[in-house]
């Protein structure tokens, strides 16, 4: 199993798409911090009444949200590029056990997603705080240790998106199809759900993948298109299901299909 994981890691780091995707996510984190610097200047020009309504958190959360999409695409490419080139046959000749092949890919994609997700999500959180300095934004008054877990969960959601992408890549065998599916789950379906008649917009909005980190952190979703009906433990149970259920289907498909 370790051999297979090491081989998948070698595969992932030896193609340019991986470097491009990680660079885009990292670049976006830098962009978020730069925006925070600009927000600090805006803050300085506001009067006291305006300052009580001026929030920084939506900007801080943007980094993790974009990283979800980036790493979702990375997960898709980890599988679909093998189907596109036919290299999947070479892979399965080298590692004939389909379950070991998929598990090795999942380990590598998940760890990459987690590392990039945490770096981007926590980086945006801390970077934005640094950028605004001591300015008392109404949503930045809590100590760092209090807000950090929320952003750490957001980083986990990035890994979940990466695994979801991987599973869709295996199931659909087409990068274009799987990326469209990832984008749908990432933002299009939540937007549609938001416009459903109540109470369904709230109910379904509470189980949307991108909104789960907020619920796990126990925060209100009033400012967003998502719902917040789930308790933090319930939301924490739904989050990994978004990775594991599609992966289970991918494993079944892989085992039953001719390569």
């Amino acid at each position: 199993m370790l051999d297979a994981v090491a081989a998948e890691w070698w595969k992932l780091r030896s193609v340019r798409s991986t470097h491009v995707i990680v660079s885009v996510a990292a670049g976006f984190a830098v962009f978020v911090v730069l925006l925070a610097v600009q927000q600090a200047h805006v803050w300085d020009g506001l009067d006291a009444a305006q300052r009580t309504r001026f929030l920084l958190r939506p900007l801080q959360e943007l980094g993790g949200w974009v990283a979800q999409l980036c790493l979702g695409v990375l997960g898709v490419l980890a599988a679909a590029s093998e189907y596109r080139t036919g290299m999947v046959r070479t892979s399965l000749v080298a590692v004939p056990s389909r379950s070991r092949f998929l598990a090795a890919k999942a380990v590598v994609v998940a760890l990459t997603g987690l590392a990039v997700g945490e770096a981007v999500s926590i980086g945006c959180f801390l970077g934005a705080r640094l950028a605004v300095g001591g300015r008392p934004f109404p949503d930045q008054r809590a100590p760092i240790a209090h807000d950090l877990p929320g952003f750490a969960v957001s980083g986990v959601a990035v890994a979940v998106f990466a695994l979801l992408g991987l599973a869709l890549g295996v199931l659909l065998r087409s990068a274009a199809g799987a990326i469209v599916a990832v984008v749908l789950l990432w933002h299009v379906v939540p937007l549609l759900v938001y416009h459903l008649p109540g109470p369904w917009n709230e109910r379904l909005g509470s189980v949307m993948l991108s909104g789960l980190p907020t619920e796990i952190a126990g925060l209100s979703a009033r400012q967003s298109i998502y719902g917040d009906l789930l308790s933090p433990p319930a939301a924490a149970a739904v989050l990994p299901a978004y990775a594991l259920v599609p992966l289970a289907f991918a494993g079944l498909a892989l085992a039953r299909r001719d390569a």
Binding site: A7, W10, S14, S17, T85, R89, S91
Partner: peptide, 21 residues
């Protein structure tokens, strides 16, 4: 033809070798 065009020859054989120790 079933190789990823973006990968270097050494890397293509490298991951294969690694997968079998």
């Amino acid at each position: 033809g079933a190789v990823h065009g973006g990968r270097r020859a050494f890397d293509h054989l490298g991951w294969l070798a690694r997968s079998n120790g």
